[in-house]
């Protein structure tokens, strides 16, 4: 079984949700449509549906996260599941047996789903490959590899703001592409949705080798990179990267790649600005942009709940007894 086929069952349905690559356009459109239905649940006075009543979902976080964990927790609770939050902060060298032991112990408590965040690429796949057959695994971010629910909530946000015709859109992803699991997942998702133009914009040191093979145009200059684009997705600059050889200083980065109202003039007049959060104000973008009318950063957070409800319920809606 290959890594990618792990997440789709023999009927073409979602079994785990591990990465965007390996999915098809129909399936990601189904996720977006299902999320659209769940978005309405927040209008009810009881903000809950009983879909996953009696199921137990474990948020297994080996890496700190507030927003992602909280929205996964809320999504699970709005589906009426019981939620267990387990934060295991440990060095990334401890894996293998220890991780399996953790897994076996949780399985012995009869849980139904793991939501996994881990600093090592492939951790969610490892857990999915080794978990009991009835358990579904959702990847909440693994190393530099993938953060598929973030990419889906970004696609959901773009579709809500710009409409479903991705072919008519130019999208620029700006920032630390090299270390970004978010960017990788976004590029895959945008290409699956046949986005007109996908650009990545970053200094040479923050672009992965063979970046074009991901299916994106590479730009090293912000102004040409965002020229006439409809959507700009800014990435978070990890502060620890600034101490290494990747960047001279946060100040210089902001001068060259930070988004300001002035630089936004190069983009399409109705450009939408996104950021997965948390923002480093004055590093990736000016507060004026982050809080301005083009920003949909807080909508992204709201949409994260509906998208995670969709992915969780789809992965759990396999026929009982059907483990393939």
């Amino acid at each position: 079984m290959t890594r990618h086929s792990l997440q789709i069952d023999k009927n073409g349905r979602l079994r785990h949700f591990l990465c965007i690559s390996g999915l098809n356009r129909q399936l990601i459109t189904e996720i977006l449509d299902t999320a659209e239905s769940f978005a309405g649940v927040t209008q009810q006075s009881v903000k809950k549906v009983p879909l996953l009543r009696g199921k137990t979902i474990v948020n297994l976080f080996f890496e700190a996260s507030t927003r992602t964990r909280t929205t996964f927790e809320l999504a699970a609770k709005r589906l009426s599941a019981d939620v267990l939050n387990i934060n295991i902060t440990q060095s990334s060298t401890v894996k293998g047996e220890t991780l399996l032991d953790t897994l076996r112990n949780l399985e012995a408590m009869h849980v139904d789903m793991f939501v996994v965040r881990h600093a090592d690429s492939g951790a969610a796949h490892f857990i999915a490959a080794n978990a009991a057959p009835h358990i579904s695994v959702i990847n909440a971010g693994d190393g530099w590899h993938s953060h598929p629910t973030q990419a889906m909530l970004d696609m959901f946000t773009i579709r809500r703001v710009k409409g479903a015709d991705f072919g008519a859109l130019r999208v620029a992803i700006v920032g630390d592409i090299l270390h970004s699991r978010v960017a990788r997942s976004q590029i895959h998702a945008l290409n699956l949705l046949n986005t007109g133009e996908v650009r990545i914009v970053a200094p040479q040191s923050l672009i992965p080798a063979h970046a074009e093979s991901l299916g994106a145009q590479v730009h090293h200059d912000l102004q040409t990179g965002i020229k006439d684009v409809d959507v700009i997705i800014m990435l978070r600059l990890q502060r620890e990267r600034m101490q290494g050889a990747f960047l001279p200083s946060a100040h210089e980065y902001f001068e060259l790649f930070g988004l300001t109202e002035e630089k936004l003039m190069h983009a399409s007049p109705d450009v939408t600005v996104m950021h997965p959060g948390p923002i480093n104000r004055g590093v990736e973008m000016d507060s004026e942009v982050a809080d301005g009318p083009r920003s949909v950063i807080l909508e992204q957070v709201t949409h994260g709940i509906a998208v995670r409800m969709a992915v969780m319920s789809m992965a759990m809606s396999r026929k009982e007894g059907d483990t393939g």
Binding site: T34, E36, S37, L51, M314, S317, K319, E320
Partner: peptide
């Protein structure tokens, strides 16, 4: 739901 799965096109109420 757990027996027949989710209807792919759920109209919002």
């Amino acid at each position: 739901f757990t027996r027949i799965g989710m209807n792919p096109v759920v109209q919002p109420s």
